[in-house]
């Protein structure tokens, strides 16, 4: 299984503020059209060369919404 970097977003913890979307230097994040349990359209990850820099994690105002994986097996992404 190939190893790569990726970001996992807890759908129900995201408030859709888009701060991570603008922070990501590789533009890996966007706001999806699905609506989560607390009523927001939440951020989604799409790998466009994630370096696991962690900027999205640090700028995100929710404490547990974002987890950043480095060199991790892909299957855990889903």
């Amino acid at each position: 299984m190939a190893k790569r970097n990726f970001v996992k977003i807890e759908p129900d913890e995201c408030k859709g503020c888009k701060v991570c979307v603008h922070a990501c230097p590789k533009e890996c994040l966007h706001i999806g059209s699905d609506i989560n349990k607390i009523g927001y359209q939440y951020a989604k990850f799409e790998d466009k060369g994630c370096t696991a820099c962690g900027l999205c994690f640090y700028v995100c105002p929710e404490l547990g919404a974002i987890t950043v994986y480095k060199n991790e097996e892909e299957e855990k992404e889903k």
Binding site: E10, D12, E13, K15, G16, C17, K18, V19, K37, I38, Y40, Y58, V59, C60, P61, E62, L63, G64, A65
Partner: peptide, 16 residues
């Protein structure tokens, strides 16, 4: 609502 989320508004600086 939300036992996993903060009470802060979306995009608030506090959470960061």
């Amino acid at each position: 609502p939300g036992q996993k989320t903060t009470h802060y508004c979306p995009g608030c600086g506090h959470g960061t």
